[in-house]
């Protein structure tokens, strides 16, 4: 025998034979029943992960767009608010001004009306007083003279006298501040 100890194990037909059978079966079983499910699983997961990444990317894109949109809307709303406030302020100012003006005008008008009224009253009163005074003076003069006087002439004289008196009174009232009836 070439190798009596077996340490070099030169060509052992039994090992060779069974190795061939065993390895062939093992190779068949593993390539048939082991690799395909693992491959499918890996491919499935790969597809899932890719899908998830795509999904995430899409979602992020959408979120970014949404955020930009919201930012824009907020900016718009802020601008709008500012504008509204500005308008309101302007309107309020204008309103105030207008109200003030109207009030002033109204007041002026009332004052004017009152003044006119007073003036009219005053003139009426003066006219009455004059007429009264003239009448009284004429009456008194008639009684004193015992005859009728020329009414028209007399009235003119009285009016002149009264005008003089009035002028005097006016001068006096501005002079010492007290007014005598």
């Amino acid at each position: 025998m070439l190798d009596p100890t077996g340490i070099f194990d030169l060509i052992k037909t039994s090992l060779l034979f069974w190795e061939f059978i065993t390895f062939a079966i093992l190779l068949f079983l593993i390539t048939r029943y082991v690799y395909p499910p693992i491959r499918d699983q890996i491919q499935k997961r790969q597809a899932e992960i890719e899908g998830a990444i795509d999904e995430a990317q899409k979602t992020r894109e959408e979120a970014r767009e949404l955020l930009a949109e919201y930012r824009r809307q907020i900016e718009e709303a802020r601008g709008e608010g500012r504008r509204i406030l500005e308008d309101a302020r302007k309107q309020a100012d204008a309103q105030r001004e207008r109200t003030k003006k109207e009030a002033r005008e109204e007041g002026d008008k009332i004052v004017q009306r009152a003044r006119d009224e007073i003036g009219r009253e005053r003139e009426g009163a003066i006219r009455d007083v004059r007429r009264e005074v003239a009448g009284m003076v004429i009456q008194a003069s008639e009684q004193v003279l015992g005859r009728t006087v020329d009414h028209d002439e007399h009235e003119r004289l009285v009016a002149q006298a009264l005008d003089d008196l009035e002028a005097e009174v006016a001068a006096g009232s501005t002079g010492n501040g007290s007014r005598t009836a």
């Binding site: 090992l15 069974w18 065993t22 093992l26 499910p37």
Partner: peptide, 28 residues
């Protein structure tokens, strides 16, 4: 031709079975 089942052959089988089981169990 000698195809006796020796200790070496049995060890070979054990190795093959273990190899298959390691992979097969993982794939299931």
């Amino acid at each position: 031709i000698d195809i006796s089942i020796t200790k070496a052959v049995v060890n070979l089988w054990i190795g093959a079975v273990v190899t298959f089981l390691i992979m097969f169990v993982g794939s299931r």
